[in-house]
Amino acid sequence: MIWAIDIVLLLFIIILAIGAVLARDLLEAVVLFSAFSLLMCVIWVELNSVDVAFTEAAVGAGVSTVMMIAAIAKTVRWEEP
């Protein structure tokens, strides 16, 4: 565990989370959330829990992104003001 890498990764994660919440374009929010999951996976590996990192990469960054994009395709893309 290297604290400098941890700090940088956590900073990126906070930026991505705020961006995903603030985005008006829902597709943009989904992509930001996928990147959030990917960085979270790196953090799990950094914390020596490879099992959780595996689940995060497969479910968080892979399957759930596709499902949220499918949900956007069935509804509307833009958040209402």
Binding site: V50, D51, A53, F54, T55, A58, V59, G62, V63, V66
Partner: peptide, 21 residues
């Protein structure tokens, strides 16, 4: 090692979903 039933099922499903996409 790392991994297991749930992770393997998710990766299998992700492969089929990539094919479908």
């Amino acid at each position: 090692g790392p991994g297991g039933g749930f992770q393997a099922g998710c990766v299998l499903a992700a492969g089929f979903i990539l094919y479908a996409l």
